[in-house]
Write a protein that binds this DNA or RNA. Structure first.
Length: 645
RNA sequence: GCCGGAGUAGCUCAGUGGUAGAGCAACGGUUUCGUAAACCGUAGGUCAGGGGUUCAAUCCCCCUCUCCGGCUCCA
């Protein structure tokens, strides 16, 4: 008997039945065999020493492959668990999967890990790696497995639930064993612990068993593992870079915003430069809403509790709302967590005809939501924020065009801020188990949302059952400059509110009809959006968004007068300018402008005063251009600072 | 909310059971300089807040607030 293996290059080679992956790799080449960590047969990953009993598509997996990295990190997690169990007798272990860039493992221990504990564990891991212990696959019967893991209640729970994604079959489970340590695992693993080239523990934290806050809190240790020391260093470097562009750091540094503790957690104040940035974003929001046919409405921050009762918020959103205030004659008021009810009341202010629709209301509406104390995160997760919110009411016939219209708006919005189509992906979330509205409505709406995505050529994934209970939605995700994904815009149907408020319009046949309601946010939250922009651009905004666009630096005090007139020329062209009148050296003035990430530095000295010229230096460029005639310099900067179309 | 870590000058950080220092920033003076840090000086702190232990607390203990890393949740 023989098995016929088809290699990735298309060639087919016959091997004896029961040949191992390692033997096949050796037959291809000794270096490949050395690099091999597993093989893939017909899409299934197998350990190197597993005998192959069938033919098919075959590939050798090395640490260069995504699957290889996955295996490396999975094996690292095992070594972590092995180290923890050895260092902390009496501890137990739960699950430890690979994740992007690393792995974690959850443990049940008496006391949470300290940073010193992590060092100790990491040392132990390195010892285990040095010992180069082979990973051995063992197949256990269910009862046998229960016995082996009798002391580990989380493992027992896993075996009892026999989750095929975590173990291997119905009545059998697989485990991997090295040097007395055994862990439940589907595999595959590296051939031995010595094949982990670079591993590092990063942090520990609490984590709930099965992700359920009502169950045990375990202690999770996060780590990272790479094919080489250099790649590990590069990764750690990347983390540092990400830290440098953290908006919570850059915000105060660039004097944009801050979170003074007397104000309260999750509540930002905007400094003048951040205020300018925000004004620019909001100006653009208003301009684009106007372009897309929206009308501007304004609703109060405080509304009667009864309204929130009608809208259902007090039923399903109460825990995110601030407590009631009782005013005249025991009337209760509440701060708004959403803008929709206010907009609905405007819709209801008069009888609406089909001729009025679609009716598009928009508001930069500031809302307040109670967030659990542990989740606030700068501008990205705040307790007070401003949505670029809109609510559109339309007929069923209009719905398809309307959804596409709004999706196009969201896409144009993102593009203006440097997020082109290649950085955008969408998620279509459909009807969840618990939902309101007729099945027919859901079907129509889901279909039209998908059609809009197709028509606009947006890549999307469908998340079945992930829609809100009141309607399906599209979420727009954006990938930033360092590859992180953020959720921003959303186009969302609402079958619930029109019903709750009894919204109607008069049809051509003079009958009352219920309109469709569409929520749409382009940025989501202005605060969050700006937080993302700060991180995306690392604080170096494109010139049209930069709070200060031009710094004029006179070489010496005698050039201040000329510098001021140069500044005036730029200001006259509509640019935002600062003239540096300090008595520092030019080098220092330039350094300060660069540190503040101003897009344009204009240096003026004796020669410029004489010739009516300036020296130009743009952010991100190490060189400068001298002797540029003032008018030409202004033109160039005006062009550089032009708003996106 | 839960688990852990942290809070010393505007910022970055030293420090000790006997009431605090550096660099940068600020301010004053000198310097007037052509593309990433001129020189000298001055001022600046209820050591997050409150309580406790102690002859004595920034340091040890407790509570609160705020921040950081996660979990859960989410724009």
């Amino acid at each position: 008997m023989a098995v016929l293996l088809r290699y990735p290059d298309g060639s087919e080679v016959e091997h004896p039945d029961g040949v191992t992956g390692l033997e096949v790799a050796k037959s291809i080449g000794p270096r490949l065999a050395e690099a091999a960590v597993a093989v893939k047969l017909n899409g299934q990953l197998l350990d190197l020493d597993r005998p192959l009993t069938e033919g098919g598509d075959f590939a050798v997996i090395t640490l260069k492959d995504p699957e290889g990295l996955h295996i490396l990190r999975h094996s690292s997690a095992h070594v972590l668990a092995q180290a923890v169990l050895a260092e902390f007798p009496g501890s137990t272990f739960a699950i430890g999967p690979p994740i992007e860039d690393g792995f974690y493992y959850d443990f049940g221990v008496d006391t949470p890990f300290s940073p010193e504990d992590l060092e100790r564990i990491e040392e132990r891991m390195h010892r285990i790696i040095e010992e180069d212990q082979p990973f051995q696959r063992v197949v256990l019967g269910r009862d046998e497995a229960l016995e082996v893991f009798a002391d580990h209640k989380y493992k027992v729970e896993i075996i009892e639930s026999v989750d095929p994604s975590e173990v291997s079959g119905d009545e059998i489970v697989t485990a991997y064993k090295n040097n007395g340590f055994i862990d439940l695992c589907r595999g595959p693993h590296l051939p031995s612990t010595g094949r982990i080239p670079a591993v590092k523990l990063l942090r520990s934290s609490g984590a709930y068993w099965r992700g359920d806050e009502n169950r045990d809190q375990l202690q999770r240790i996060y780590g990272t593992a790479w094919p080489s020391r250099a790649e590990l260093d590069e990764y750690l470097n990347r983390l540092e870079e990400a830290e440098k562009r953290d908006h919570r750091r850059l915000g105060p540094e660039l004097d944009l915003f801050s979170f003074p503790s007397p104000v309260g957690s999750g509540l930002a104040v905007w400094h003048p430069k951040g205020g300018m940035l925000r004004k620019l974003v909001e100006d653009r929001s208003r301009a684009m809403h106007e372009k897309y046919g929206f009308e501007f409405v304004f609703t109060p921050h405080l509304m009667k509790a009864d309204l929130w009762r009608t809208s259902g918020h007090l039923d399903y959103y109460a825990e995110n709302m601030y407590p009631r205030m009782v005013m005249d004659n025991d009337v209760e008021y509440q701060v708004k967590p959403m803008n929709c009810p206010g907009h609905i009341l405007i819709y209801q202010s008069r009888t609406r005809s089909y001729r009025d629709l679609p009716l598009r209301f928009s508001e930069l509406g500031t809302v307040y939501r109670y967030e659990k104390s542990g989740v606030v995160h700068g501008l990205l997760r705040a307790r007070g924020f401003t949505q670029d919110d809109s609510h559109t009411f339309c007929t069923e016939d209009q719905l398809g065009d309307e959804l596409r219209h709004q999706l196009r708006f969201v896409l144009e919005w993102q593009a203006a801020f440097g997020f082109d189509r290649s950085m955008i992906s969408a998620e279509l979330s459909t009807r969840p188990e618990k939902s309101v509205g007729e099945a027919r409505q859901w079907e129509i709406a889901e279909h039209l949302l998908a059609e809009a995505l197709d028509a606009e050529g947006v890549d999307y994934v469908v998340s079945p059952g992930e829609g809100a209970f009141y309607g399906p939605k599209i979420d727009i995700h954006v990938k930033d400059a360092i590859g992180r994904r953020w959720q921003m815009g959303t186009v969302q149907l609402d079958f619930n509110n029109p019903e709750l408020f009894g919204l109607e319009y008069v049809s051509p046949g003079n009958v009352a009809q219920r309109p469709y309601m569409v929520h749409c946010a382009k940025a989501g939250s202005i605060e969050r959006f700006i937080g993302i922009l700060v991180e995306h651009y690392a604080g170096a905004f494109p010139a049209w968004l930069a709070p200060v666009q031009v710094t004029v630096a006179p070489v010496a005090d005698r050039h201040i007068e000329y510098a001021v007139s140069v500044g005036a020329a730029f200001t006259g062209a509509g640019l935002r300018v600062e003239v540096d009148r300090s008595s520092e050296t030019v080098g220092d003035k330039i350094r300060r402008a660069i540190t503040q990430k101003h897009p344009v530095i204009v240096v003026v000295g004796d020669k410029d005063v004489e010739d009516g010229t300036v020296g130009l230096r743009l952010y991100g460029e190490d060189r400068d251009t001298r002797g540029v005639p003032l008018a030409e310099a202004v033109d160039r900067v005006v062009e550089l600072a032009a708003e996106p179309a």
